[in-house]
Design a protein around this nucleic acid. Structure first.
Lengths: 153, 153
DNA sequence: ATAAACCTTAGACTTAAATCAAAGGTAAAG
DNA sequence: CTTTACCTTTGATTTAAGTCTAAGGTTTAT
C-alpha cells in the first residue's frame, strides 16, 4: 500500500496530479485510511503507469478513461461492445504509429545526410527529407535528388 | 497562392488557428497582399500538413517549432547542431513508437481474446492484456501466469 | 506533547492551444 | 454603390491538464 506521496515520487509526478486524477475519476485509489488518506495498491501503481504511458503517446485523459473503462465496466458490457471499442482504438494507434514512422524516416534521412561537422547546414531541412521519403513511397523513381544531396557545400 | 480561408478549408482547420500560428511564429505566410491578406504557397500548405501531422502524434507546438526551425535556421547553424537536435528528436520518436507498440499489442491481445459475442466481457481487460505483454518483455520466465489467462475461467 | 513532515479539502491560478467577439477594411456580384 | 462574404486587428473566453494556496487534520520522531 502506497500513500499519495510515495506513489507520486515513485512515478515522478506530483501529489496534486494524483488528486486531480482522483477528482476526475480517472484514477481513484483502492481505499482510504480512517482519517481519509488515499491508499494505493501495486495494481493501482500499474494502472497509473499505464495512464502515464498513454499520456506520453498523445492520448488525452478522456481517451485514457475510455480505455480503462473497458476494464471497469467489463462485467456490464458485452464482449461485442468491448471488441468494437478496442478495435477503434487500435485503428487510432496504428495510424499514429504510421505517422511516427513517417517522421522517423524523415529525421533519419536528415541525420544521415548531415555531415555532422562544423559547416553551415545549408541543405539540412526536414521538409526536404520529408519530400524524399514521401517520394520514395509514392513514386518508384523520380529522383533528380539522390540521397546524399548535402555533405560538400 | 491560397488565402487564409482556402487553406483553412483545405486542411480542415479554422482561420483562427492559422492566425494564431502566424502570431506564434510557428507558421507564417510567405507573403501578404497590399491590403494585408495572408498569402500561402503550396509549399506553405505542405508545411502546414507537417505541423498538423506532428500535432496528432503528440508533439507540442513548441516542439514542432523546434523541428521546423531546423529548416529555417539552416544556414545559421552548423551541421553538428542540427544533427544533435535531430538525434534528440529521433530518440523521442523511437520511444513513442515503442510505447505505441506496447499499447497495440495489449489491445490486439484484448481483441483476439475477446469472443466478440453478446456475453458479458468478464475477463476482457486492458490491464490483464498489458500484464501479459509486459511480462513477455521484462521477465524471461517468471510466469505462474501463462499467457492465455482468459477464455475459460 | 509538540514540531516537522505529511495528509485533507476547496478553490484560485497557470499554460498551451485554441476559439470567439467586436470593430472595421476589402472585393466581387447584383 | 451597396450588400455579402471575406479579410484585418486587438483582446476576451474556453478547455485540458495541471499547479498552487490557504486553512486545517494526522503521524512519527524527539
Amino acid at each position: 500500500m502506497y500513500r499519495i506521496g510515495e506513489l507520486a515520487t515513485l512515478c515522478k509526478i506530483k501529489t496534486d496530479t494524483l488528486r486531480f486524477y482522483d477528482k476526475q475519476g480517472l484514477f481513484v485509489p483502492s481505499s482510504r485510511t480512517e482519517s481519509g488518506y488515499r491508499l494505493y495498491t501495486k495494481k493501482d501503481a500499474q494502472r497509473l503507469r499505464f495512464i502515464l504511458r498513454a499520456k506520453t503517446i498523445g492520448f488525452t485523459l478522456v481517451e485514457i478513461s475510455e480505455l480503462l473503462s473497458i476494464e471497469l465496466d467489463k462485467s456490464n458490457k458485452a464482449c461485442a461492445d468491448v471488441k468494437s471499442l478496442v478495435d477503434l482504438k487500435l485503428a487510432d494507434i496504428s495510424q499514429k504509429i504510421e505517422q511516427l514512422h513517417y517522421f522517423k524516416n524523415a529525421l533519419q534521412q536528415l541525420s544521415s545526410d548531415c555531415c555532422g561537422g562544423p559547416e553551415s547546414a545549408q541543405h539540412c531541412s526536414i521538409l526536404e527529407a520529408l519530400e524524399s521519403t514521401s517520394s520514395a513511397k509514392n513514386r518508384t523513381n523520380n529522383g533528380h535528388h539522390q540521397a546524399h544531396s548535402h555533405a560538400t557545400k
